[in-house]
């Protein structure tokens, strides 16, 4: 870990202002950032502690939704009675991630900004276009291990996946991310706008500008329906998803599907949602069209389809 200066921000404006300094980085839960700093994958020279900025509330919006403060912990969010009642998909996704200890510390904003678990990203001896643009992608070299990696939305520069469970639920719920810029302006993003696909610049992982801070996540009014989050992993707990499926299904058979574990961002397509009444294979035909799996991760296509089939069979 490289040495850094440490400062606490008293409010969001002070935080965003301080974060304009080159090499500055926000820290909240720290559960991913410190992990990456120990590996020197992240090397901030200044760390701005935003846990005291008062952004840990969860409050109703005038539109009938919820505004979740960026500092609300994953544990608190999963336990919020309104979330459990009106957005059970989100609660389910949260509790399927990480461990109890980590969820107590990890925040909503930090969870959105988690970086990939690709082994070649984590091993700093390996070329990685995320860590060092232009260095190459060790994960696409001959003989590489790719069982965990992405099958769609990926590029020749990067086949990493986004590791968040929470974000998959948020994508299915049409949540939006609210931010604050150092100049005081605020912005609002859909998740697809928030997470650019890697293309030839996989080091750009979000739409955030320098110093821009996530202040909250806004859930629209509840959509009801049967909501399930199913996460497939090698062990029963405390593991990242091989494939996860977020499903919202209405009584008429319509609904929404988002996938985790397969792409650089939570993966959802309108055309796939529209195919939901036709069943799992119709959905996946649309949702995974254009997939480019490796020999070792091609199973994810079949697994995604069968996981959705299982969820649909249950009704």
């Amino acid at each position: 870990m490289r040495a850094f200066r440490y400062a606490r921000a008293a409010d969001p404006a002070a935080a965003a202002s301080a974060a304009q300094a080159p090499g500055a980085k926000f820290i909240a839960g720290g559960t991913n950032l410190l992990d990456l700093m120990k590996h020197e994958i992240e090397t901030p020279t200044q760390v701005i502690d935003v846990t005291g900025t008062g952004l840990d509330t969860i409050a109703p919006t005038p539109e009938g939704g919820l505004r979740i403060g960026a500092m609300a912990s994953n544990a608190a969010l999963s336990a919020d009675t309104r979330v459990r009642r009106d957005y059970p998909l989100l609660s389910r996704a949260l509790v399927s991630g990480a461990s109890g200890q980590l969820r107590n510390k990890a925040t909503t904003g930090g969870n959105l900004l988690q970086r990939t678990r690709c082994a070649y990203f984590y091993d700093t001896a390996m070329p990685c276009n995320k860590r060092s643009p232009g260095a190459g992608c060790a994960a696409q070299g001959e003989g590489a291990t790719t069982r965990q990696l992405g099958v769609i939305g990926i590029s020749e520069a990067c086949i990493a996946t986004h590791p968040s469970d929470m974000a998959v639920a948020l994508r299915a719920l049409d949540a939006e991310v609210e931010t604050l810029l150092p100049d005081g302006r605020t912005r609002r993003f859909t998740l697809d706008a928030f997470y650019p696909l890697p293309g030839d610049s996989p080091h750009i992982e979000s739409a955030l500008a320098p110093g821009e801070m996530i202040t909250s996540v806004v859930l629209p009014a509840p959509v009801g329906g049967r909501q399930t989050y199913y996460k497939v992993r090698d062990r029963a707990s405390y593991a990242f998803a091989l494939v996860s499926v977020a499903l919202i299904q209405q009584d008429d058979g319509s609904g929404r599907v988002a996938l985790g574990g397969v792409a650089p961002r939570p993966w959802r397509r309108d055309a796939a949602d529209e195919a939901l009444p036709q069943g799992a294979s119709a959905v996946m035909e649309k949702l995974l069209e254009g997939a480019r799996p490796t020999r070792d991760n091609a199973y994810k296509l079949r697994l995604a389809e069968r996981t959705l089939a299982a969820l649909l069979e249950e009704t």
């Binding site: 440490y6 820290i27 839960g29 720290g30 559960t31 410190l34 992990d35 760390v47 502690d49 846990t51 544990a75 461990s99 109890g100 200890q101 980590l102 107590n104 510390k105």
Partner: peptide, 21 residues
């Protein structure tokens, strides 16, 4: 999880948080 401690009554991993925080 070997580093689990309680901070203000909540369990966390002590290895992934800065003491100064």
């Amino acid at each position: 999880g070997a580093c689990t401690v309680a901070v203000n009554g909540t369990r966390i991993n002590a290895c992934l948080t800065l003491a100064v925080m």
